[in-house]
């Protein structure tokens, strides 16, 4: 059992501004735990969480992978960046946080150098307008509003994953049934030769949540 990170330093006033870890977060933690041996065996050196929010997920994976990995986080919400840092301190994890959009700050320098990418995106289907306003206002709505199929933001990052991942890299994505999982898997395989596999799925209230793990084409090489 890998303990859930200590978040006792975060208060309701923080959760008014950032996403509070919920079922989707916990399913992602469970999936990382299920995959812990594969993760460790892949000997990662650089881990990037896109949209780190509270910092719960990176603190958790740092518990699995230990201190010899560089933990990078981005978030468009400046308050989330502060919370991610504080959660790192609280859990004795050294996290490097940048207030930025998706992978943009690191895109050039870390091309094909990132070993683990984690993204729990704003996946909830909303109007396109709501999703766009939420992203540009950089507040808590940006943590969930995802446009008509909930893929407005996710699709942007999916286009870039292949260029970021190291040869042995892996990418974990949280998705909702309404996001059309078969289509995501098909697109990633056909366009980028990234093979997706569902690590875990769970129904939580109205949401049917999935954690998908992507690896480069040749699975026998990658496992």
């Amino acid at each position: 059992m890998i303990p859930t990170p200590n978040l006792s330093h975060l208060k309701q006033s923080d959760y008014d501004l950032i996403y509070e870890p919920a079922e989707d977060t916990f399913l992602l933690l469970d999936a990382l735990e299920v995959d812990a041996d594969n993760l460790k065996n892949s000997k990662p050196r650089v881990c990037l969480e896109v949209g780190s929010g509270s910092g719960c997920v990176t603190s958790f994976i740092a518990n699995i992978l230990g201190p010899s990995v560089l933990y990078l986080c981005t978030d468009i919400n400046p308050h989330a960046c502060q919370c991610t840092l504080r959660t790192g301190v609280q859990n004795h994890v050294d996290i490097h946080v940048v207030n930025g959009s998706l992978d943009e700050p690191f895109q050039q320098r870390l091309s094909r150098k990132i070993d683990v990418i984690i993204f729990n995106p704003p996946y909830v289907p909303t109007s396109e307008e709501e999703a766009m306003i939420a992203q540009s206002s950089r507040n808590i709505g940006g943590a969930w509003a995802g446009g008509s199929d909930g893929m407005l933001v996710t699709n942007v990052l999916l286009q870039r994953i292949e260029a970021l991942l190291s040869p042995n890299g892996r990418f974990y994505l949280v998705a909702l049934k309404q996001n059309d999982i078969p289509k995501i898997l098909q697109t990633m395989e056909q366009r980028f030769q990234l093979c997706g596999e569902i690590v875990l799925q769970r129904r939580a209230g109205r949401e049917h949540l999935f954690i998908i793990r992507f690896l480069r084409g040749n699975k026998t090489l990658n496992q």
Partner: peptide
């Protein structure tokens, strides 16, 4: 600011 780099760009700078 407060130790965090702001790498965000405005819409027209992206």
């Amino acid at each position: 600011s407060n130790g965090i780099p702001n790498m965000l760009l405005a819409e027209h700078e992206i």
